[in-house]
Write a protein that binds this DNA or RNA. Structure first.
Lengths: 113, 113
DNA sequence: TAGTTAATTAACTAAAAGGTAAAATAAAAA
DNA sequence: TTTTTATTTTACCTTTTAGTTAATTAACTA
């Protein structure tokens, strides 16, 4: 398994339950039970999802009495945004122009051989 | 396993070999051998990574003689970009101000109870 | 046609992911 | 102090992932 930060972030985001948890946390700090409520899933499953998000640094946790509130820690998304930024020009070019662009690059490569 | 498009895209991006393959494809169409060359990995492993990328719609493939050239298909990254856009305001707020913002929301929630 | 090159498929393995039920822990409330 | 509430840990199961080697397919080349 890949343990580099970007892989860890993408991995954490690749589950709809975890993305829904992040979405809930955009409205503020929440308890585990709060977060579990919308899902047809046992508590331990939610605990595991929270662990994945915590290890990916996408949430932070504290303690208040018997609660372990979670809050959003969006910083790793910055790196995803930067990564994806490199590809923006490729989807912004229309399909046909992308074809042309890549064909050009390809011809350039062939000339280099 | 989650089969929704966004999960599939994030899943495909969660491996550094696959991200490196995409990066190589930004310089134009490439054969499987071209793509395999930088990695200390057997061909079947690369074939599998390409299958994951193809199923995630991040690459497209064709046939030329005995070659199966690959090219970038960046469209699914658009959706990732849109998803992440919803979180931009959270990492753009300074850490302290985010704390305040979330605390505010939290108080509002408590008042609603 | 025989051999080579490019890539895939098949069969297998080890580890990780995502879930469960039951037991354990920690703090609050009665 | 006992009970309840919130959450985690443990032990288990099944499926998926990421890799391997060996065999196969497909097309070019001598």
């Amino acid at each position: 398994m890949s343990t580099d930060p970007l892989s860890t972030t993408f991995r954490a985001l690749s589950d709809p339950t975890r993305r829904a948890i992040l979405a809930t946390l955009t409205t503020g700090e929440k308890t585990v039970s709060d977060l579990a409520e919308p899902f047809d899933m046992t508590m331990p499953a939610i605990t595991k999802h929270l662990k994945v998000l915590e290890k990916a640094n996408l949430i932070e946790r504290s303690r208040e009495a018997q609660y372990r509130p979670c809050r959003l820690h969006p910083e790793p998304l910055k790196d995803v945004d930067e990564w994806i930024g490199e590809y923006r020009k490729f989807w912004e070019a229309s399909f046909d122009r992308l074809e042309d662009y890549l064909k050009q690059l390809q011809m350039k490569d062939k000339n280099d051989e």
